[in-house]
């Protein structure tokens, strides 16, 4: 049965396509009075004819209306959970005195980088400079950080299992890859605007936007990392009778970890980029300041805010990179230097 379908799959596609053209023609309002006109007057060959219009817009709008009416509650629930997580984290970080926050970042860097003094001092300095640029930026940076943080958490929760599933099953990979392409290529406003309809203005559509925009690289690198693990090492594990779970947790994930860390790093950077774009749909944070500066033609103010975003990006990047390097050293220790 499957073989027969495989053999004729191209014909099936052709029939579906022809059907789509017929439906488009029939549903079009600008079609000629009768079909025979098409064969007597060939004017439609010059310009793309108005009646050759797939009615996707109508379909999507109908579907969207039904969808948001039927499942609106679910999205309200998701939005509520995300909002609570956002406001609790944000309020906590804003209530804590700023020197303690800086100290926290420094300590985090120190341990994440495997006690590298240089990186630690640099990151601490960058963190301090965000507030130093303009004291107003401190709270805004914390808002931005919280959104990015929750967005990344969402990416991890969804992205890692999906990446693992893709690495293990080529069929899943073939199904997911086009979705990832779509997520990366589609202009961000196309999902930020429906996001507003589902979740309202503010931080939540930004988090959803981060998820759509920043999750694909994490999924791709997780998948790639697991598939790049040396085949002989996998065979070795199998030959000793490791089951799928033991293989995944004991061998594949530890060896893919440097790649996965790279994915998390990319995810972080893209999340930060998205949170700036999201300021245009009313998300508060550093992007908000850039937008304000632009609207007032205040070059200094918007440049200052831009610089603060760069500093924030550096802090995120250094911490995740340093942690990735530390893991890499642990899983693939450098060759012992030979005594001469």
């Amino acid at each position: 049965m499957i073989k027969i379908i495989k053999k004729y799959i191209n014909y099936i596609y052709l029939i579906l396509f022809a059907g789509l053209i017929v439906i488009s023609y029939l549903s079009s309002k600008r079609k000629p009075d009768s079909v025979t006109e098409l064969f007597t007057d060939f004017g439609w060959l010059n310009n793309f004819p108005k009646w050759l219009d797939a009615p996707f817009m109508v379909w999507i709008n109908d579907w969207w209306r039904a969808f948001s009416a039927k499942y609106g509650l679910i999205f309200d629930a998701i939005g509520y959970v995300l909002l609570r997580a956002y406001s609790i984290t944000k309020n906590f970080l804003i209530d804590v005195p700023w020197p303690i926050v800086v100290l926290g970042v420094v300590l985090l860097t120190f341990y994440a980088s495997g006690k590298k003094i240089g990186t630690t001092i640099f990151v601490g300095f960058c963190t301090f400079s965000i507030g130093f640029l303009n004291p107003r930026f401190w709270d805004k940076a914390i808002e931005t950080t919280t959104i990015v943080f929750i967005g990344i958490l969402l990416c991890l929760i969804v992205g890692l299992p999906v990446g693992i599933a893709m690495a293990r099953n080529p069929r899943v990979r073939n199904a997911i890859l086009p979705v990832l392409d779509l997520m990366q290529v589609i202009p961000s406003f196309c999902y930020l605007i429906p996001g507003i309809i589902l979740f309202g203005l503010g931080a939540i559509p930004a988090i959803i936007g981060i998820f759509i925009y920043a999750c694909p690289p994490l999924i791709r690198l997780t998948d790639l990392g697991i598939r790049l693990v040396d085949k002989e090492v996998i065979e070795a594990a199998e030959s000793f009778g490791a089951n799928k779970k033991q293989k995944l947790w004991g061998v594949q994930l530890p060896l893919a970890l440097p790649n996965i860390m790279q994915g998390i790093n990319q995810c972080t950077m893209m999340a930060l980029a998205m949170v700036v774009i999201a300021s245009m749909i009313g998300t508060r944070g550093l992007g908000d300041e850039v937008l304000l500066g632009l609207q007032q033609l205040n070059v200094g103010s918007s440049l200052e805010a831009g610089l603060a975003i760069v500093l924030l990006a550096i802090v995120f990047d250094r911490i995740t990179q340093a942690y990735g390097e530390k893991i890499q050293e642990r899983t693939q220790p450098a060759k012992k230097k030979k005594a001469i």
Partner: peptide, 18 residues
């Protein structure tokens, strides 16, 4: 069966680097 009956040695060693 793999756990108890036989074990394997590989050309490029197949050791776990971690």
């Amino acid at each position: 069966f793999r756990k108890h009956e036989m074990s394997m040695v590989f050309q490029r060693f197949g050791l776990f680097p971690h």
